[in-house]
């Protein structure tokens, strides 16, 4: 199955990665050779196989409902690309 340029562009949109045409073409080529290799799986009949849900051989551990974290706003905002002391800031969103 071939992945065309339009698909590559759609996927890049979903992944929020902008691609110019040249890069998209190159990527389409790479993806096609990778998927050619992946398609090998189709040779296997897996109709009766239950998918693996987790590799960890354990059950989900539950936490008790305790507040443990303090106000660490300084730490939370420390690495943010903007300088606001209270908020994260992004370009204006218009709904």
């Amino acid at each position: 199955m071939a992945i065309d340029l339009k698909t590559v562009k759609h996927i890049s949109k979903l992944a929020r990665i902008s691609l110019d045409d040249e890069k998209a073409k190159k990527l389409a080529g790479d993806l096609n050779s990778i998927f050619e290799f992946i398609e090998k799986l189709n040779k296997l009949n897996t109709d009766k196989i239950e998918p693996l849900t987790s590799i960890a051989e354990t059950t989900l551990k539950l936490r008790s409902d305790e507040v443990k974290s303090k106000n660490i706003r300084d730490q939370i905002l420390k690495n943010s690309p903007n300088e606001n002391k209270d908020f994260f800031v992004v370009p204006k969103v218009v709904e």
Partner: peptide
């Protein structure tokens, strides 16, 4: 499909 093969 991959998760099934992973099981195998």
């Amino acid at each position: 499909k991959a998760q099934k093969v992973r099981k195998l």
